[in-house]
């Protein structure tokens, strides 16, 4: 599977990365190089193999731990907002979104 320039633009758009016109070709070549190399995976027979999701080395690891329903965080609006590139009052501010 090799990417055409339209697909490269579509992926960049999905990923919200602005690609200048002159970058598209180079990106396309690089991605196709990587994807071509990855393609060798198709040769591995994987019929009936249970996919491994997550990084646990123990396949039989039980389910996840659950925490108690207690309020332990919050009340730190200043800290939450301290790094904001733009804030107005106690809100983060972004260019107006039209719905």
């Amino acid at each position: 599977m090799s990417l055409d320039t339209a697909m490269v633009r579509r992926i960049a758009s999905l990923a919200r990365i602005r690609l200048e016109e002159e970058e598209v070709g180079r990106m396309q070549a690089e991605l196709n190089g990587i994807l071509g190399w990855i393609e060798q995976l198709q040769a591995v027979p994987t019929e009936g193999v249970e996919p491994m999701a997550g990084g646990s080395p123990l396949p039989a690891a039980g389910g996840m731990r659950m925490r108690a329903d207690e309020v332990t965080e919050g009340g730190i609006a200043e800290k939450v907002l301290a790094n904001a590139p733009d804030r107005i009052g106690d809100y983060f501010a972004v260019p107006k979104v039209v719905e």
């Binding site: 107005i88 009052g89 106690d90 809100y91 983060f92 501010a93 972004v94 260019p95 107006k96 979104v97």
Partner: peptide, 9 residues
Amino acid sequence: QHPAKSFID
């Protein structure tokens, strides 16, 4: 809340 911005809570 603002002519040019949306506020996020």
